[in-house]
């Protein structure tokens, strides 16, 4: 597979503190690559280095096989980035904003601008100042911006921040469209796990500036199945038993259903204990949730 984006020992230090340290990630062509991490983990710092807004303290970035530092202009002509929210000149019209953007990238025709504005439903307001646009309209203009220059790689930093559920859904649909219909590679930074579960094909998890997991979403989840749903009768003795077991964490219970988190490979041991204590177990099955995976890897620091 062709690597579209690679970071090699990428590091950034701010006033004696490492925001990102020795980061090695790989994004392949066609990926919807999710870059996960808790707040302050170093996601935005990494994205800003990839988009040349921040200078790395050490390490390098390769995009399309070319060193970003040495071929900045040529590389960025094939990339579109939206950091946190699309930024536009509010005192100019949507048309003028896109014209400026286009002329800074490769030069675009009026027809191309009107086409993308039409695609996102903004053609009737093309010549209105962006100041008069609603939040959703600005976001759609951001999509138009991403489409206009026909980039091969789109980098989105927290694209759903400040959105209502409908807005979030629209952004997710936009990501799917760009990936499946337009064959663009998407690099998506987020801390919303539901977003990742719904759209990502590969992911990396970062914490305290260091990479702690990287791979395809399905592979990583298969490795980490620690959340179990157990159907037991009777309920009360089962709860008593769990309280006495330090390696079992009770998440919730409802009638005869228990939700627990346990270490890998100990499900059968728990089952045996239930039976030996006269508790009937009618079902026990694992949940492969990204949330569990994420919480586990961000609690410990061991690399996966």
């Amino acid at each position: 597979m062709e690597a579209v984006l690679q970071t090699k020992n990428l590091s950034k230090r701010f006033k004696g503190r490492w925001a990102v340290r020795d980061l090695n990630i790989e994004v392949f062509r066609g990926d919807v690559f999710s870059f996960l991490g808790p707040n302050g983990a170093g996601k935005s710092t990494t994205i800003r280095m990839i988009l040349t807004l921040l200078m790395p303290s050490s390490g390098s970035i390769e995009i399309f096989g070319e060193d970003l530092h040495h071929n900045r202009g040529a590389v960025l002509a094939r990339v579109c980035g939206i950091v946190e929210k699309p930024d536009f000149y509010l005192y100019l019209s949507a048309y003028k904003n896109l014209e400026i953007l286009g002329s800074m990238t490769r030069g675009v025709q009026r027809r191309e601008i009107m086409e993308v504005l039409d695609l996102v439903g903004l053609a009737p307001r093309a010549f209105d100042k962006v100041r008069t646009y609603s939040h959703g309209m600005k976001q759609r203009l951001g999509i138009a911006q991403a489409l206009l220059t026909k980039p091969e790689l789109i980098i989105l930093d927290e694209p759903t921040t400040g959105f209502d559920p409908q807005g979030m859904k629209e952004v997710r649909e936009m990501i799917r469209t760009l990936s499946t219909e337009r064959k663009m590679t998407i690099f998506l930074s987020t801390h919303l796990l539901s977003e990742v579960e719904q759209v990502a094909t590969r992911m990396a998890v970062i914490n305290h500036g260091e990479l702690i997991a990287q791979g395809s979403v399905s592979d990583l989840l298969d490795r980490e199945t620690t959340h179990y749903s157990i159907q037991v009768v009777p309920n009360a003795p089962a709860l008593d038993l769990i309280e006495r077991l330090p390696w079992v964490e009770l998440i919730s219970h409802d009638n005869n259903r228990l939700e627990v988190r346990i270490a890998e490979g100990r499900a059968s041991e728990l089952n045996r204990l239930f039976i030996s204590n006269g508790i009937e177990v009618s079902s026990i099955f694992p949940h492969k949730t990204l949330e569990d995976f994420f919480l586990k890897v961000t609690r410990g620091k061991a690399a996966i």
């Binding site: 988009l51 040349t52 807004l53 900045r72 202009g73 040529a74 960025l76 002509a77 990339v79 980035g81 950091v83 929210k85 930024d87 536009f88 000149y89 509010l90 953007l101 800074m104 990238t105």
Partner: peptide
């Protein structure tokens, strides 16, 4: 202030 500096600096011109 407006955030448009990012709009400018992530484009090809140096």
């Amino acid at each position: 202030t407006a955030g448009t500096i990012r709009f400018l600096l992530i484009r090809p011109p140096s």
